[in-house]
Amino acid sequence: MLLSERIGPIESASSAPLYLQLQKALREAIQHKVLTPEDALPPERDMAEDFNVSRITVRKALEGLVHEGLLTRRQGAGTFVAARVEKNFSKLTCFTEDMISRGRSPHSEWLARMEGAVTPEESLTLGLSPSTPVYRFHRIRYADGAPMAVEYSTIAAFALPSLDVVDHSLYEAMASAGYKPVRALQRLRAVLITPQHAGLLGVKAKDAGLLVERRGFLKDGRAVEVTQSYYRGDTYDFVAELNDPA
């Protein structure tokens, strides 16, 4: 079956550039699971003939999806729908947004939701006075039913009306309250999965893992979020785009 028969043809009446139309069709096919992880795409020449566009158009469309982490290129093998999740460090998005954009179905399992006073360490990190109230959210993050990360978030209490407003997306709840971070500092380091986290993530103790520490800031410069996320090392990749300032 031709790829155009699986995902649908490019809309001839659309005024959008052809590469964006093809990119949109492929992205929606991945999101709707018409194309699934590890599916191989046809060679660029075949796709160009199939969709009646130039190879340059096909290449540009695919490059955009590779940059988004939806596709991966393998030397000598071709282009495939990504099986591992790629998190772009240059974009401030939450886990839920990342998974939905990649055609995955996210959900969370709550370990704890609690209100308390800021700890001395949190006080320094968030710039809050001692005894300032904060909310803490501990949960396992899943994609398509598979555990991906254990996440521990501390949020300044002024940024949320209550604990209960947080459902599937912390950032969505913060945005509704008018306090979604617009900037973040993130630190990534390799760790060994602890026995406690191994049981939650379905891996072995001392397996490779990734710890991402994030501090989120509001537009006025105030720190509002501190999150530590422990990711399985076998399912998650972090990428960053680098540019020459010259």
Rank of each mutant, 00 (worst) to 15 (best):
E121S: 11
P106Y: 09
S108P: 02
L92M: 11
R104W: 01
E121D: 15
K91T: 10
R104A: 01
A117S: 12
G103T: 03
V118S: 05
L92K: 04
L92F: 10
M99E: 05
I100W: 04
M99T: 04
F95Y: 12
W110K: 06
C94W: 00
G116E: 05
P120I: 04
G116P: 06
D98Y: 15
E115V: 09
F95E: 03
G103F: 05
F95C: 04
A117N: 14
G116T: 13
G103M: 05
L111P: 03
T119G: 13
R102D: 00
L92W: 03
P106Q: 08
E97V: 15
V118K: 02
M99R: 01
C94V: 00
P106S: 08
R113H: 05
A112P: 09
D98R: 08
R102C: 02
L92N: 15
V118M: 08
P106R: 07
P106C: 12
D98V: 13
T96E: 15
T93A: 03
C94D: 15
P120E: 09
W110N: 05
A112M: 10
D98F: 15
E121G: 04
V118F: 07
S101R: 14
A117I: 10
C94P: 00
T96K: 06
G116A: 04
V118Q: 06
S108E: 09
S108D: 10
S108R: 07
P120M: 02
L111S: 08
W110Q: 02
D98P: 08
H107D: 09
V118N: 03
L111G: 11
R104N: 02
E115A: 14
S90C: 13
L111A: 14
R113W: 03
M99A: 06
F95L: 07
S101N: 10
I100F: 05
P106E: 07
E115P: 11
R102G: 00
M99S: 00
P120Y: 09
E97A: 12
G103R: 01
H107A: 03
W110H: 05
V118T: 08
S108Q: 06
T96R: 14
S101Y: 03
A112S: 15
I100E: 14
R113L: 04
A117D: 13
S90G: 03
L111R: 15
E109K: 05
S101D: 13
S101P: 03
I100P: 00
A117Y: 08
G116C: 10
S105M: 11
R113K: 13
L92S: 03
T119L: 13
A117K: 15
L92C: 06
G103V: 11
L92I: 14
T119V: 11
R113M: 14
M99C: 11
E115N: 11
D98S: 09
E121P: 05
T96S: 12
R102E: 02
F95H: 08
S105G: 09
A117L: 12
P120F: 07
A112E: 14
E97M: 15
R113S: 11
P106N: 05
E121F: 06
T93R: 04
I100S: 00
T96G: 04
R104G: 05
A117G: 13
D98T: 08
E97F: 04
E115I: 09
E115F: 13
R102F: 02
